[in-house]
Design a protein around this nucleic acid. Structure first.
Lengths: 238, 238
DNA sequence: GTAATAGTGTCTTTGAGACACTATATG
DNA sequence: CATATAGTGTCTCAAAGACACTATTAC
């Protein structure tokens, strides 16, 4: 379907995805390397995966984000949420552009990285290190910062970290996912009470882990979205 | 600055704004009537104010939203927050389009409606009535529903309703703004404790209101954004 | 004084934080 | 048995809900 209007100049329309996973006890984000070339903006820079909306293939923005996610990770149904949009005359040297940004949570088990792409052009990176030192293409540094902020904020009062784990997972594993995202320890007893009383987990039987008492395994009762807790995790202060 | 790329078809890029105010004890939204005409989509329908991004006038999406808000209400610095974006091949019969949606909170005192526009083409409408019975143009009904949901959600744990009032306002007035948005009564004592202990209000002296004991007037210490409370307002249940 | 609204005190409850305790597996 | 990790019990505290109470104005 070709547009009949408007006739005046329009911005370019893109979709980018911030894909998060927990790797080696740290929050990681998937980045792709931009092509080298005389007419390429930010050649060789790392960037969030994304690109132009394809008006012939993408029925809507959400479908476009899922397509880009599947192209990089093979994951079909992760947790996917719209983060916001960034648009300006200057964010891309080629002219006015606007990107619709999503953020996704996947487990490393379900997302063993690209399938066929050049390994040097895509990879998982520690979020803290990227934010601290790696200049990303376009305004992707600012976008990544906003995505991490949104994630950390929502983790304070939702069950979002469960989407970073493979099922079945254990409560100690879920607690560790919370601690990795929040960057601080969480009390075990309160954590368990909170998770179990929120009634979003289903027992799947004990799963052996290592060499000691086997923990109970759980899966999500409903994978369509996180549960919202009545209070935040904020530790006491004053 | 004209775009040099891409050469393939691109979606149209728009910005729409859901502008809220409290009027006659009800949450209202500002709507504009679409033009009549053979080539106009949804002729004569009510819609959220908005339209195409002007790549020559708008430096970024936020500036575009402020421009559209000022054109309809004259308000220069309201509370403005990005809601999200909606894009698909079918939402506009003219073809693929994507709109970046903002929501704004204004006081009726500061926004006496249009300045010069035809009064029959713009107006305040009760949100509940619009959602219940008035079919809006495009997907604006769905967008309005999302905006109200976001507003109601955030009002549970932030000081957002203060942006619906003219300064100075009183605590009973602020409480009423909360009750209007939430659609339920709020306990006075707990409300006052919560507001005053959050330390975001500055006393401005008593303001006479009607015929009885004059309440204290307040203004916001910081108008750049709402304060976040540690818990929601949710009433007890089970 | 009365009426009306502004503002406070007090009791209860929920659920988090801290942390010591018990339980159950492997070797 | 020792060890390690899983899981529980108990005390305290912050802040919300419910609701009865007092305070201050106009008339």
């Amino acid at each position: 379907m070709a547009r009949r209007a408007p006739s005046f100049p329009q911005p370019a329309t893109l979709v980018d995805v911030a894909i998060f996973a927990v790797r080696d006890g740290a929050l990681n984000v998937l980045l792709v390397r931009r092509a080298e070339g005389p007419d390429e903006p930010f050649p060789g820079h790392w960037a969030l995966p994304g690109g132009y909306v394809d008006v012939d293939r993408d029925a809507n923005l959400d479908a476009c984000a899922r397509r880009k996610l599947a192209e990089k990770t093979g994951v079909a149904s992760p947790y996917l949420e719209q983060l916001g949009s960034w648009g300006s005359a200057t964010r891309d040297p080629r002219g006015w552009s606007a990107t619709h940004v999503f953020f996704a949570l996947v487990s490393l088990g379900s997302a063993p990285l690209e399938k066929g792409a050049n390994a040097s052009d895509v990879g998982w990176f520690d979020v803290e290190q990227v934010l601290a030192s790696a200049p990303l293409a376009f305004d992707h540094g600012e976008i990544l910062r906003a995505a991490v902020e949104r994630l950390r904020g929502k983790v304070e009062y939702t069950s979002l970290p469960a989407f970073l784990l493979d099922e079945p997972f254990t409560l100690p594993e879920l607690q560790q996912a919370y601690e990795v995202v929040l960057g601080r320890p969480v009390d075990k007893s309160g954590f368990r009470t909170r998770m179990l009383s929120a009634d979003f987990l289903v027992e799947t039987g004990q799963v052996p882990r290592g060499t000691n008492r086997p923990p109970m395994g759980y899966r999500l009762k409903d994978r369509s979205g996180p549960v919202v807790f009545p209070r935040t995790f904020s530790p006491r202060s004053g």
